[in-house]
Design a protein around this nucleic acid. Structure first.
Lengths: 246, 246
DNA sequence: TAGGATTGGTAAACGCCGTTAACTGTAAAC
DNA sequence: GTTTACAGTTAACGGCGTTTACCAATCCTA
């Protein structure tokens, strides 16, 4: 049946409408929004959690597409600019769509059986940013931990990553570069989650100072020669969001 | 009425039992656990969110007490040891009590009226760790940003903090030290939330490598001379938790 | 082309949830 | 000794996830 994919698409569409309107995501509301009764949805998802997983995955995919489009204004040989701007876009999206952000990034992954862990396998925004980081590494050749520094346990884990890294991307399977990505992701996820959930003085969140400090540390670490240019991009992108939202 | 405080205590007790047993926190379940009907709870909290806020606050207070007790094995003139061990305890608690952690640290603060923001005012674990950081600063005299580096906006915010900082603690109202605390909190919150919610390869979480790296960076930044001793404490405390949970 | 199987929907019901309204007994206050 | 505040009750409403039984198309196949 060709209808099925269209139905899945409408499930996601109605779900995102619901979230955007400030409502909670619920099976019954989605069904009602589609002009269908609730049990009908069980032909497409086997329970509520699976609906959440589906919507979360599709949201992550959709916002990743917006990163990709928005960074196309930089040439392909400028991955650093794309990367830092994508980080700012990630923050702006989180702050402006808290419920969507919470759905994607604050729902326990390990808890819900295997399906959700498999979904992490197709973590779009992570793949996108990892690709940019690898491209930036090709250009700037910044350092990353050696296998000796990582230790055997980490080397084993990183040599068999969950993410479907394009094998052509990381040459000779160097695990240090993937660890660098994980470290950067930890920093980005951490500061954005902190801001989105408001466990920081709201005036500090509003100022963006903590986020900027985090990004600056990473620019200095990876591409110090480009600091001024990249920092200007970050500040400009932040200012744009701050003015867009009173 | 003297009864009221006892009733509040039992609300919290039953709520934590519920969470510990893996159930969801709900008004009706709490009422049932107390041998009372659901509407009776409305004499104590005005709605469900207020129950959540109450329980979250009490949980934070209770776990802070466990940090305080567990770090009493270090002398009072060794705040650095207390601080790093408290950070590990924070992580261990989060990983072993995911639902409690989510309740306290992954519920939007700003969203829910003013009451919750006021509760942040009495953010126990934050106050405790800030106190330890200040004590450590008195001992090691590590550097922190100057007002010029912070900029006027941050200085204004930090000079009128939300947290009820003991004015005797921070001398002359130096805002840079408070900013350092906020930066450290961002790093700690970030890496622990990342691990608890599992948006990182679960084997990396299991290894603790990302957390250790974060803590080590901060030890090196603040108290490099104590690195070996403090790092050994961190590793020992982590190992203890890893063996306690198969 | 007839007939069984699959697909995608329905209505009805269950038990749980937060919340409200009206009511009641008990203890304190004047 | 009467009034009043408190702390609980019962009953009900609407919404939730989920299951069961049923039904009408549509497709596959003999």
């Amino acid at each position: 049946m060709r209808h099925r994919e269209a139905t899945y698409a409408e499930i996601v569409r109605v779900s995102r409408e619901l979230l955007a309107s400030g409502s909670e995501l619920s099976l019954r509301a989605v069904a009602a929004g589609m002009g269908v009764t609730a049990p009908a949805l069980y032909r497409y998802v086997s329970n509520y959690q699976e609906l959440v997983d589906l919507v979360a995955f599709e949201i992550d995919k959709a916002v990743t597409d917006t990163y990709r489009e928005a960074t196309e204004r930089f040439p392909d040989d400028d991955p650093a600019a794309k990367l830092v701007v994508a980080c700012v876009l990630f923050r702006n999206w989180g702050l402006q769509h808290r419920s969507e952000f919470g759905l994607v990034f604050a729902n326990p992954v390990a808890a819900t059986s295997y399906s959700r862990r498999e979904l992490m396998t197709q973590w779009c925004s992570g793949l996108f940013m990892n690709g940019l980081l690898v491209q930036a590494w090709r250009k700037y050749d910044f350092g990353y931990p050696t296998p000796e520094e990582l230790g055997p346990e980490l080397v084993a884990i990183l040599s068999d990553p969950l993410m479907p890294i394009d094998p052509a991307d990381i040459p000779e399977g160097e695990p240090g570069l993937l660890w660098l990505f994980n470290s950067g992701w930890a920093a980005l996820y951490g500061v954005v989650t902190l801001e989105v959930f408001g466990h920081l003085d709201p005036r500090v969140v509003e100022s963006g100072a903590m986020f900027v400090q985090t990004i600056r540390e990473w620019i200095r670490r990876l591409m110090p020669d480009e600091y001024d240019r990249l920092d200007a991009l970050v500040v400009a992108e932040l200012r744009q969001a701050r003015s867009a939202q009173p």
